[in-house]
Simulated scan of single mutants.
Amino acid sequence: MAKEAADLTTIDLFSDEKRPGRPKTNPHPRSVQIKINKRNQVKRDKNKGLKRVEFKIHQSLFDQLDVLAKDQGISRSELIESMLVDSLAKQS
């Protein structure tokens, strides 16, 4: 049987060949890269004076916030922050 490059039924014949693709540019495995990137993000946020807040909300409220943020052209995080600032300003 001849080995044909375009023949997908004989894919096992090509298992030892290197396929073209994006070259590996980072020596770390993906799981380590994610940890490093997250650590760097936390450092950047800390330097900007940002703190992480996490809470759970119902899907319907989440969807409303998402639509409102897209309408205003800002991120959901920025929208929630502005709503909290407005609410706290009204309290004073």
Rank of each mutant, 00 (worst) to 15 (best):
P27T: 11
T25A: 14
R76H: 00
L79I: 01
R22G: 08
I36E: 04
M83Q: 10
A89K: 15
Q72K: 14
S82V: 00
K90E: 14
N40A: 14
D16C: 09
P27K: 15
N47W: 09
V42R: 13
K18G: 00
P23Y: 04
N47M: 15
K43Y: 09
N26A: 13
S31A: 13
K35R: 14
P23C: 05
D86P: 02
S75M: 01
N40C: 07
D71T: 10
G21S: 04
L61N: 08
K35C: 08
A89L: 13
R22D: 12
R30H: 08
V67Q: 01
P23Q: 06
V85R: 12
D7K: 02
S60N: 11
Q33A: 07
R30P: 01
V53E: 01
L65F: 05
G49H: 03
Q33P: 01
A5S: 09
I11C: 00
K35W: 10
L88K: 12
P29L: 15
S82Q: 13
S82A: 12
S82H: 02
V67M: 01
S60D: 14
S82C: 07
F62C: 02
P29Y: 03
I11R: 04
I74P: 00
A5T: 05
A6K: 09
Q72H: 07
T25Q: 08
K18M: 09
Q41T: 11
N37C: 13
K3G: 06
T10N: 08
K46S: 10
N47H: 11
V67F: 03
K38M: 15
L61T: 07
D63R: 08
G73M: 01
S92M: 15
K38T: 12
S87D: 09
G21E: 03
N40F: 05
G21V: 00
F62S: 01
D16M: 13
A2H: 07
K90D: 11
D71H: 11
I36C: 03
I11L: 11
Q64L: 15
S75L: 04
S31F: 13
I11A: 06
A89T: 07
V32L: 14
T10I: 07
D66C: 07
L50S: 08
K3F: 10
R39Q: 12
S87E: 14
E54S: 14
Q91V: 15
R19K: 14
F14H: 00
S87M: 12
K51I: 07
D86S: 15
K51F: 06
A2P: 11
E54A: 12
K18E: 06
R19Y: 08
F55Y: 00
Q41C: 11
A89D: 06
M1N: 07
Q33I: 11
L50G: 05
S92I: 15
E78M: 02
V42S: 09
V53Q: 02
L50M: 13
L50N: 14
E78I: 05
K3E: 01
D12H: 09
S77P: 02
F55V: 03
P20T: 05
Q91G: 09
S77K: 06
I57V: 00
H28N: 14
L79K: 03
G73D: 04
D7C: 02
P29E: 05
K38N: 14
Q91P: 04
K48G: 05
D66G: 02
E54V: 15
L61S: 06
I57C: 01
N40W: 01
P29A: 11
E54C: 13
E4I: 14
T10Y: 00
S75G: 04
N26I: 07
Q72D: 02
T25G: 08
R44G: 05
S31R: 15
R76W: 00
K90G: 10
S60L: 13
